[in-house]
């Protein structure tokens, strides 16, 4: 409840629409999206594939332009927010450069943003530590497992200390054990750094476990069908997933997903 008082808008979307014009007709990827993401929120986006989760994150990052409606990022247009390097983006694939070692990959944004050599080194070290990849600095991406590669890409997104993290199904391709582990670590990281996180997922338990706010979406046209505020305690051991409260929230998410499914 403390957050609601001191809330500062990080992402604000009003009547946001995006229509892709393709050769076989128009795709209404986002329809009338109204959403507020506040500072310190952990927002999960969940819904069947094709419901516009990726597209929404891409609009926030100005990788796509909305057809209609309004969106601000930190109170600015997405374009200015991008210029100001307001967010780190973690893609579904690790998207590491094959010819760079892990530490060189993590320093890529720092090089581009013109950080000094010393600062680069410091930040790379700190963030490698943070994601638990110490000792793998000199390894090349292909020498690491999928989970480790994805952690490297998270470290890279954290390296320049943006207050907002956009994560598009970062753990989608990983097995469940690795995924649980990374979920715990991500939650720790979020608590430690007090960042705002937008997190796309397919998995109900993942969404409930991580989030303060769950956005349930539905396809054709892509729209928001439910927004659930989670009141799970901030301290979340993995076994919280068996608690009554957890199951109730998961139940509501599932209902939201099913309803949108039946409508179609």
């Amino acid at each position: 409840m403390k957050q609601a008082v001191s809330s500062k808008s990080v992402i604000s979307a009003k009547k946001l629409n995006l229509i892709f014009k393709t050769n076989d007709g128009a795709v209404h990827a986002l329809k009338d999206i109204d959403l507020e993401v506040e500072e310190g929120d952990f927002v999960s986006f969940i819904g069947p594939s094709g419901c516009g989760k990726t597209t929404f994150l891409r609009v926030v990052a100005e990788l796509e332009k909305p057809s209609d409606g309004e969106i601000t990022v930190n109170g600015k247009t997405p374009k200015i927010a991008r210029k100001d390097r307001d967010y780190g983006y973690v893609f579904q694939a690790p998207a590491l450069l094959q010819w760079r070692s892990i530490s060189q990959n993590i320093s890529l944004p720092l090089e581009i943003m013109g950080y000094s050599k010393n600062e680069q080194k410091e930040r790379v070290e700190k963030n490698i530590d943070l994601v638990g990849l110490s000792g793998f600095e000199k390894k090349f991406p292909w020498q690491l497992s999928g989970g480790m590669q994805q952690r490297a890409s998270i470290a890279r997104a954290l390296a320049f200390d943006a207050d907002l993290l956009l994560m598009d199904e970062p753990f989608g391709a990983l097995d469940e054990i690795v995924r649980d582990h990374l979920n715990e670590q991500l939650l720790e990281l979020w608590k430690k750094t007090k960042k705002t996180i937008c997190f796309v997922t397919h998995s109900i338990p993942e969404a409930v476990y991580l989030s303060t706010k769950i956005v349930v979406m539905s396809p054709r046209p892509g729209r928001i069908t439910d927004i659930i505020h989670s009141d799970l305690p901030l301290k979340r051991p993995l076994n919280i997933r068996e608690s009554q409260k957890f199951l109730e929230i998961a139940q509501r998410v599932r209902r939201g997903l099913r309803e949108s499914h039946l409508e179609n």
């Binding site: 990052a61 100005e62 991008r82 390097r85 893609f91 998207a95 581009i112 943003m113």
Partner: peptide, 12 residues
């Protein structure tokens, strides 16, 4: 995806 990544850094 790599080009998009560079865009999010607002790379020249």
């Amino acid at each position: 995806i790599l080009i998009d990544l560079m865009k999010t850094y607002s790379s020249s």
